[in-house]
Amino acid sequence: MFFFITTLILIIIGLYAIVTKTNLIRIIIGFAILEYAINFFFALVGFKKGALAPIITQVDGPKNFVDPIPQALVLTAIVIGLATTALMLSFAIKLYQKHKTFDITKIKELKG
């Protein structure tokens, strides 16, 4: 239960950073926190207390495994997260070159 509450707090921290921070880089860091929190949560879903790593070494081995699927899924999610973070950072760099500022509230040419 402790871990679940931890992930929930992490999610809220991530959202807080995204919504309230005005610096592009801090927003991206907020995303990283949010993403890791959710990945952490996903990995926890398959966790069983006292279970073994899901590596089958013999046919009639012990049945007490951790669920391996979330781990595989989290790996995929991390890869996707890498792509989004990289793309977002490249946007941030380009935005800085064009606007000479990292403040997202000052970048507001599209409105109405």
């Binding site: 995204i18 919504v19 309230t20 005005t22 997202i104 509230t105 970048i107 507001k108 040419e109 599209l110 409105k111 109405g112």
Partner: peptide, 13 residues
């Protein structure tokens, strides 16, 4: 139209 001020934190809120 005015409400779409282009400020991201507003949109997120």
């Amino acid at each position: 139209s005015e409400a779409h001020s282009g400020i991201l934190p507003n949109y997120l809120s």
